[in-house]
Nucleic acid binder design. Sequence first.
DNA 1: CCCACTTTGTGCACCGGTTCACAAAGGGAC
DNA 2: GTCCCTTTGTGAACCGGTGCACAAAGTGGG
Lengths: 235, 235
Amino acid sequence: MIRRLSQARERGIPEATVARLPLYLRALNGMAERGLATVSSEDLAVAAGVNSAKLRKDLSHLGSYGTRGVGYDVEYLIYQISRELGLTQDWAVAIVGVGNLGRALANYGGFVSRGFRVAALLDADPEVVGDHIAGLSVEHIDELEAVIRRRGVSIVVLATPAAAAQQVADRVIAAGVTSILNFAPVVLAVPEGVDIRKVDLSIELQILAFHEQRKTDRMTGGPAMAEEWPEAVDL
Amino acid sequence: MIRRLSQARERGIPEATVARLPLYLRALNGMAERGLATVSSEDLAVAAGVNSAKLRKDLSHLGSYGTRGVGYDVEYLIYQISRELGLTQDWAVAIVGVGNLGRALANYGGFVSRGFRVAALLDADPEVVGDHIAGLSVEHIDELEAVIRRRGVSIVVLATPAAAAQQVADRVIAAGVTSILNFAPVVLAVPEGVDIRKVDLSIELQILAFHEQRKTDRMTGGPAMAEEWPEAVDL
DNA sequence: CCCACTTTGTGCACCGGTTCACAAAGGGAC
DNA sequence: GTCCCTTTGTGAACCGGTGCACAAAGTGGG
Ligand SMILES: NC(=O)c1ccc[n+]([C@@H]2O[C@H](COP(=O)([O-])OP(=O)(O)OC[C@H]3O[C@@H](n4cnc5c(N)ncnc54)[C@H](O)[C@@H]3O)[C@@H](O)[C@H]2O)c1
Ligand SMILES: NC(=O)c1ccc[n+]([C@@H]2O[C@H](COP(=O)([O-])OP(=O)(O)OC[C@H]3O[C@@H](n4cnc5c(N)ncnc54)[C@H](O)[C@@H]3O)[C@@H](O)[C@H]2O)c1
């Protein structure tokens, strides 16, 4: 029986599933706070905003933790998902680039709570170095490698200007970090084995604008059916 | 010939393509600045960090703008992508919730440049209302509907605490907005026809942690092959 | 102990998206 | 005008992911 479970979990959870686990975890935490002991896939799916079959399939990748006819034990599922995501240990995060965004991130309490700890703030600007933010003193970028080593930093958040991001990423990777969350609007080139995730406000807005345009086009009849666009367009 | 193009563009660009167009646009802008007149799919693909076949297929959804044997005209392609994304008009954006994050966003110059204009800042805290940020005065949330109407706001950025997000979203949607960029860590329930995009720092970090754990597991031999997990785990 | 009811876990068909590989198209040299 | 070279645009195979639908498993009541 343990055999069957091991098989189910066979090295490798689909990427799409991994991306949803934090969502389930958040919904479950809400339920735990409200004192629910068990939850059905249907209810949890609604809370997480997904289809219940998808939810069950996702959870089945971790093992067989539900009880047919009953549902899932909330606390136990929280534990299993947390463990799968690696949230049972805590992760030291460094923020590089302490400007508008870097400060907001440093002051943000929301992620300190769940396994992540801001362990260092780094910046190149002598004006900024030494500032105290969220209980930390901003250190100089020259200290990067030393800080990463000393504090056991394993995840770096990049909040520098775009022009500096690649160069900082190179140093961070050379120092042994393999997980980077990048806010700078550049495509970072990184060696195999380094995970980059990017958050790009400007892209999100452009995607929204695209759909918004479609919606209003539809309203106003849109571009004519014939004569889709001008024969030639000068710039 | 126009017929064939119209057909290619037949109402509906794949979502995955839409999400990449801003990336191409950014790469193209860099090239235009460096004075390049034309670019091959291969070069542009490298700059955008994608496969060249994918890039060509993406662009083919907009029309047949390349020249075989030569490549794409940089300026013309910039224009076509901008137009497709709806960036030739400018979009009035309101930011609701002017705390740590809202301020960083308001001060951020990066997206004002490309078709987006921060037209209003709104907050519920009387302490914050009236503050001047990035040339705008923070207005009270009670003014929400009036401000949306008066300034022609069509995209709203939500940067309130999670607890307030749904309620603000409801009002914003009731006021006619159908495009929302949500930074609050909640699943928003919205009617059909409203586009929500979310940016969730905490989820990004959790995904990184998952992979980071896998990497270090691999190093240290990982969880034993047999006895995958304890028979029972108390909480 | 058995039956009716609930809910999980998953086989399977389907779908959007990716990638390969190549025919078709255009440019430039002579 | 012809030939060769480059590069696009796309057909087709493939792949990961989704959602339906249902058998299997477990619960609770009588
Ligand atoms: N502020 C936002 O809302 C926002 C939104 C989306 C994206 N971004 C992106 O995030 C990044 C930061 O934005 P911001 O508004 O905080 O910019 P900012 O200019 O306010 O801050 C950047 C900080 O990085 C520091 N820095 C510069 N070079 C450095 C280096 N080599 N090493 C270490 N630190 C260095 C600067 O001293 C500064 O403190 C930018 O790339 C921006 O495009 C910002
Ligand atoms: N700061 C970050 O780096 C960060 C990162 C990720 C996610 N977030 C999320 O973004 C949101 C904002 O974060 P923050 O750090 O800026 O929080 P914050 O508390 O600094 O700011 C929130 C602001 O929203 C205002 N507000 C509260 N209720 C409101 C309402 N009903 N209408 C209008 N305004 C209202 C508050 O007055 C406050 O000014 C939160 O949901 C947070 O979880 C923040």
